[in-house]
Amino acid sequence: MSHIRRIGRPGDLGWIVQAHGELYAAEYGFDGTFEALVARIVADFANDHDPVREAGWIAEVDGRRAGCILCVAGADAVTAKLRILLVDPVARGRGVGARLVDTCLAFAREGGYRRVTLWTNDNLVSARKLYRSRGFELVEQEPHRSFGRELVGQYWALDLDRATERG
């Protein structure tokens, strides 16, 4: 059994950083600079987020953390950013990723955001498929060398005024 809850229990933030570091190293060969990036994102969220306009969630499966996502303010008052989506392999195929993304998008709508953006890499095929299924569109991509790898970074955006809510 799985459920989604707000970030806030002791260990949640550390788990997000550790899970990203371990999983992305094992599955994509990312080095420690990726874990450091996630640590900065999590630290920024923990130290200075607006709880009315920014939130994070943990997915639990059988009482254990198995996924996460953040919704944070973007570059302007009407844009939110979806950040650090992760689903542990034990939770894949159960709709956990979709529920996390849908929770994030519902929060963005309720918070008055009109657009949600995200940055990812083209090798994250399952995540990109999920984003596309929710109406995100690829708006820009560029090759880069990060995390010890040659990658293609991608910027995606969703116009919440045009997107339909999923239940």
Score class of each variant (00 low, 15 high):
L124Y: 02
P89S: 13
R162G: 12
G167N: 11
R40C: 02
S126H: 14
G8I: 14
P51I: 06
C68L: 07
P51H: 05
V52F: 04
S133P: 05
P10K: 10
E35L: 08
G56Y: 04
E22C: 11
V125T: 15
A46G: 08
V61T: 04
A19D: 10
H20N: 13
E140G: 10
G32A: 15
R162F: 09
R145I: 10
G29C: 04
G153T: 09
T103W: 02
A59T: 06
I84F: 10
W57M: 12
G148T: 03
L160W: 01
R6Y: 09
G135W: 08
T164M: 11
A36C: 12
R64N: 13
E54W: 11
I84A: 15
V17K: 08
D102K: 07
R114C: 05
T120M: 09
G67L: 01
T103M: 04
V90Q: 05
S2K: 11
R99W: 00
Q154Y: 03
F34T: 02
D159W: 00
R92A: 00
H49Y: 04
I7D: 02
H49C: 06
K129D: 09
S2M: 14
L13V: 07
V61E: 00
E22K: 13
Y113D: 01
R128I: 08
L124G: 01
E54G: 13
T79V: 09
I4V: 14
E27M: 13
D31W: 02
P10M: 07
A98Q: 13
R145F: 11
V78R: 13
D122Q: 14
L13H: 04
R162L: 15
R65P: 02
W119P: 02
P10N: 07
Q154W: 00
Q141C: 14
G21W: 04
A157R: 12
A80W: 00
H20W: 05
L85S: 07
